[in-house]
Design a protein around this nucleic acid. Structure first.
Lengths: 246, 246
DNA sequence: TCAAGCGATAATGTATACACATGAGGGCTG
DNA sequence: CAGCCCTCATGTGTATACATTATCGCTTGA
């Protein structure tokens, strides 16, 4: 009890600005982060009682959170047997890229058809310039890689937002729960690859500005699908997919 | 013990084939059916207590079911304010068709790339023949329309299944929770439209059999998107979208 | 008369106790 | 000795009581 209260306060102090409205939502975040960080092996069962002891809340919000995460596709549920960390085959990871490719392509098309709102336009121009700067250097240190990953994320999120279609945004988000299949993980930082992908960004932006839905869609689809190709190369290089950092 | 056993048996007699494993799952079905049948106006709040009284179970499975349906996109959730029936704008319905178009197109491509399993091949050939028969008549009565709707559903489901990609299947299922945006509702039964769409089915099947992913994808995309066009025509004809039967 | 603050009420969020299902281990029987 | 069944332990499913939050109407003051 005292322990739980302390941890609660601790959590509040760590993130004072964005405290979730309910415990359930807080638990969703905590478990999601833990799973994405690889704290549980795929296939591990998540026992409600143990989680509730570990996180210091009762089983009710735990159950609720587990159900949420299962519907996101991150966990697997079997009636009367509970939840376990979903195991993704290589095929599923690759498929997730294909799905993400057509979805993000559709988002780019919507953005081109509907016009780019001022806020998104500004954000994209900013990250394009930032990316230009980062890539001006001959080699990328760890810091630059992190910075470019943020640039990449912002670029894509701006386009999702410009698509103005909630269902599409939701579905793209689901794709990101698949390990490796997120623009938050820049798969390859090889010189040619990054520069080429950054150039893609410029062209996609041009197409959207020019209100050319077909070109925007086509470019974005190839952009995302090409990452899949890099990924397959990487996976076949080292047969086992490592999880976690990098 | 005895009481529980009796209730169990009773339930078995009522629905001998598909008894849900838990009350939560049963409640999910019941609420989903009610909402799809239009028993609640869009925007209506679903009070947990009232539902629990109406369905004769406690709030726990009700809450669980509501959460499920919200993650399917059928309900809307606001923390501390509960669930309400999601209101779909015309724009969202049309967008759902676009999304479904690219997803089903991807499914067709996967099917073509991966080959058609025997079971799916048989099912498709059967419904293609059945559709030919139905459409041989000059005019379609109510019964024929129902029969053709079933044919349509089976055709599409066989292709989803042949795609062998769970995530894709899940996402397509989500599209179907949007009213009007389901192949279970054949939008237009005008002669030309139905015949054309049935012809599309034949061609899509041919493309998949010929292992022509590009053609299968393109045909399916146009096939679904064209329904969108019919829908827009219909909606602009009668400005208010009627829900429920027909 | 209107606006703002406050309190009552109802609905959701959470905790906990109990019911039931599943699986493993040991004892009984053929 | 092998196989089956029964029992028990573990963990999920459900019900219910309590805590917290939102909403609405009322009062009060300007």
């Amino acid at each position: 009890m005292t322990d739980a209260a302390l941890r609660q306060i601790e959590t509040d102090e760590v993130s004072p600005e964005a405290r979730p409205a309910t415990r359930t939502l807080s638990v969703v975040d905590r478990i999601r982060t833990a799973v994405l960080a690889g704290e549980f092996e795929p296939g591990t069962r998540l026992h409600e009682v143990r989680l509730s002891e570990r996180l210091g809340v009762s089983r009710t919000p735990i159950r609720s959170a587990l159900q949420s995460l299962a519907s996101e596709g991150m966990l697997e549920y079997t009636p009367n047997r509970g939840y376990s960390v979903r195991r993704f085959s290589t095929a599923e990871i690759v498929d997730a890229y294909e799905i993400r490719a057509v979805m993000e392509a559709l988002a780019a098309r919507f953005a081109a058809e509907r016009g780019l709102p001022e806020a998104e336009r500004a954000a994209i121009e900013r990250v394009l310039a930032e990316g230009d700067e980062i890539l001006a250097a001959r080699d990328l240190g760890e810091e630059e890689k992190l910075a470019y990953t943020a640039v990449n994320t912002t670029f894509h999120e701006a386009i999702h937002s410009a698509a103005r279609c909630r269902m599409l945004g939701d579905m793209i988000r689901v794709c990101h729960s698949v390990p490796h299949s997120s623009h938050r993980n820049v798969v390859s930082f090889e010189h040619m690859d990054v520069r080429r992908r950054h150039d893609d960004h410029h062209r996609i932006y041009d197409a959207i500005l020019a209100c050319d839905p077909y070109r925007a869609e086509m470019l974005m689809r190839e952009h995302v699908a090409s990452v899949k190709t890099s990924l397959v190369r990487a996976l076949s290089g080292r047969p086992m997919a490592r999880r976690g950092r990098s």
